[in-house]
């Protein structure tokens, strides 16, 4: 056990490129470190994109399996995160393309999300209400706009990186983010839309 922990500790010091070099050589021991490094970002991107926790779980697992299986395709020119988000975005687009997999509400997420103990019930309710409004607003965007805004706002990627992931020009990314923001502004800050709150199940 000590040996394993030492090896893992050493692994965490390696860069993405170095870890991927090991994977490309057929050594999968960096799998856990790479997963721990990126899984939260990948999962949350997929979850916000698809609004379905089951599909997001499957996508997350699939992304990392593909990372191992197709490691030889990673040439190190782009950041590993960019490559992983490319795979994730492709999987999410494929998922939505299937007729029965339209982005769907996953209300149980609200009920099952743990609330930080230090916050008052009022604060927790308000936060959840905001989260609900944001999630609903994101679903009003086209998939292309949603992809662009998720990568820009939540992942902090540059327009050049988003263009690479989405397979379009930087100009197109700029337009998608602008249009997404226009829609979101109307839905989230317009008093008419902002006050349209509906009660969810108790």
């Amino acid at each position: 056990m000590r040996v394993e922990m030492t090896e893992k500790a050493e692994m965490t010091d390696l860069t993405d490129q170095e870890l991927m070099g090991l994977v490309q050589a057929g050594d999968y021991s960096p799998a856990a470190v790479l997963y721990d490094r990126y899984s939260t970002r990948i999962y949350n991107f997929a979850y916000r994109f698809l609004r379905n926790s089951e599909a997001a779980e499957d996508a997350t697992q699939e992304v990392f399996v593909k990372m191992l299986r197709h490691a030889h395709q990673f040439n190190g020119e782009a950041k590993l995160s960019t490559w992983l988000f490319s795979i994730t975005a492709n999987l999410c687009r494929d998922h939505l393309r299937k007729a029965d997999n339209k982005a769907k509400d996953d209300e149980d997420a609200l009920l099952t999300m743990p609330a930080p103990a230090e916050h008052s019930p009022q604060h927790v309710l308000e936060t959840r209400e905001t989260e609900r409004r944001v999630r609903e607003a994101l679903q009003k965007l086209t998939p292309e706009q949603r992809e662009a805004i998720l990568l820009s706002r939540y992942q902090g990627l540059s327009y050049a990186e988003i263009a690479q992931i989405s397979g379009c020009s930087e100009g197109a990314v700029k337009t998608r983010v602008f249009r997404a923001m226009e829609t979101l502004k109307k839905l989230l800050t317009d008093p008419v839309n902002g006050d349209t709150r509906c009660l969810t199940a108790l």
């Binding site: 799998a31 916000r48 926790s53 800050t189």
Partner: peptide, 27 residues
């Protein structure tokens, strides 16, 4: 304000079963 509101949709933790399943498959 919109930009700030977007950030309030906090990240969800990845269920631990996903990690276990992935590592099984990697093995």
């Amino acid at each position: 304000e919109t930009w700030k509101l977007l950030a309030e949709a906090a990240d969800r933790p990845v269920p631990t079963r996903v990690r276990a399943r992935f590592l099984d498959e990697a093995a």
